[in-house]
Write a protein that binds this DNA or RNA. Structure first.
Lengths: 194, 194, 194, 194
DNA sequence: GATGAATGAGTCTTCATTCAT
DNA sequence: TATGAATGAAGACTCATTCAT
């Protein structure tokens, strides 16, 4: 009966926030952003519509949080020591991790690619995504330069297209995309002994 | 005195239909399907909202027509003699054509990929897309088989992912994707003397 | 090749007018006035939408013409010699005719009752219907007076309610309403030897 | 601080639901179903358009609720002990009640008859109406059988037509239909000492 | 923190009617 | 007389968001 301690409140907030995001992610991924209503999210989360606005300013902000926080997790797997240099081991790890995250967190990546490909779904998001991407691109570019590739920009373009393409295709029709074999093929292209 | 000849009417319908589709394609590609209202399309086409429904049953049907008719054009460039067999020349031509269409018709392909990646935006469309894709996949699979590739399914997966990925990346940031160079790289991977 | 004579034109007009009215009657009766569009009528009549407006000022006017002209036919069967007096024979004939018209022209009567019961579907129509009804009511009232009924107004109310009710019920579920037997019953109530 | 108790909410919902239904009944009866827009109902009820959809799934469902719940009230007055047998007293009571409800709730019955006579305004409603009617018809049929009428089906047809006809006529022009006198006449026909 | 009734702007869609031909 | 492309006003319905409790 005593009022909740602020610690308990924080826990609740954290928990509810996660709950809302998970529910939203599920629905956005399966129905799309526009075909998912706040009501649906609330129902799935087992809370009231109003409460969602207690945690997120708007439907768009919810989406934004979803995408950005999801990306953070992913980002941690890239250039692990954050020194701007990608060793072969890190490169290899990155690819492996990319593939396994795709499998572990299908929902999120479906959402992510749907959003990214859409026109300027979210002006704000656009900018932040660039922030995320820029250092990765730079680091990756260096990697190709340092490893003696003739045309690093083209190599980078090729590589990033390949990874994105594989993700999208896999997410749409996993049964046709044996990620293990594809990983091996990629490794062989980049002469990594797997 | 006399009503318009049916020839005149046909011309008008042909023209207006195209006009509506073009306007819609533009807007869908730039704003997305959901963020483009029928009003916007009408305004852009310089006609009344109602007229759109004289040509298309619904916003969804308009989209469907847009995608399917656009794909037809593309499809014509694949396995040109329709014998189910892809020669090296045809394979090469297909890739070249793919790249040039990407550049010629940016709007359409933006729309296309946005739609394809979305959750089942359109049940109907989904099915029809499969119809389009199936024979291409078959033919392409045979190509890899006939050309001595060890693991045709993986090869096919890799190839289709690569092309899709390149398209998406290019459409989002053309300045970073030099299609000429990328084509050359692809040709070299598949040992085509360009 | 010679231009049509005005006589021929008149014939055409008459024919087309009838055609439109018949088509409309059918559709109004089956789908209701609001759920029948001008397009539907045109299609059923095998003509263009525009042409309908060559014959009727509006959808409402078409309905009005339909109802009024239909009623005229019916009216002719009442007080045949138009002397304001209803003989027993005329009374009997009227009832018989009422029943047979119900069977002959189901569509029209469905439409008629649907319209009449509706609120003020047509202000105009309302007035004209009264014009039609007034003399019939008067004559009928006299009939009951002349035939020694104690309370002619109540008798009239009863009689008109009975006929309307029978019509409506019969039109809705003809299989449950054996008009022959019902006629006999009515005759017996009003002591007419059938 | 605390959200409204569910009791409060229930009350609100109950009240608003009734309010919407009453407003709708009024308007449907006076203007007809099709000529009454959701906006009109909202305005009359003093609420927003959107709120109506918080209580009813569609305009049609609102109508359906209106008709069915109205009929329930009526139904309670028929064969009061629900034993499937109509005594003379119950028969008499039914007729009396029928007439008084007609006067008490004019709006509802206008709406009801307008709907019933229309072409299949509502497929669903049609079915449910039959459910309502069937046992009444059965019971009434038994009544005529048990009371020695020669031709019960015809008697039933006559009786139901009479009641419907009286209702419709009365609702359209109450000044001409003295229900008291008509009731007396009906009672005399069925030999009930009033 | 939590609820859900309430709002109102915005969307798709229909359709009677007009008019150039 | 006849056509059908075109209009635009109006309608049903949705949904993000607010707010009193």
């Amino acid at each position: 009966m005593a009022p909740k301690t602020s610690e308990q409140n924080l826990e609740i907030r954290e928990f509810k926030r996660k709950l809302i995001m998970d529910s939203a992610c599920d629905l956005f991924a399966n129905h799309g952003f526009f075909d998912t209503s706040i009501s649906m999210i609330a129902k799935k989360a087992g809370i009231s519509k109003g409460l969602i606005y207690n945690y997120f300013d708007s439907k768009e902000q919810l989406l934004k949080a979803l995408v950005l926080e999801g990306l953070e997790t992913f980002h941690e797997n890239f250039d692990q020591n954050k020194d701007g240099i990608l060793t072969r081991e890190e490169f290899e790890f990155y690819i492996s991790r990319y593939f396994s995250l795709l499998q572990e967190n299908t929902k999120f990546w479906k959402l992510y690619f749907a959003i990214v490909i859409q026109p300027p779904v979210l002006e704000l998001l656009d900018e932040e995504l660039r922030k995320f991407g820029a250092p990765m691109i730079q680091t990756m570019s260096n990697f190709f330069k340092d490893n003696g590739y003739e045309d690093p920009p083209t190599e980078l373009a090729f590589f990033s297209a390949l990874l994105s393409g594989l993700a999208i295709k896999y997410l749409n029709a996993p049964e046709y995309f044996d990620l293990e074999k594809l990983k091996t093929k990629i490794f062989s292209i980049y002469q990594i002994k797997s």
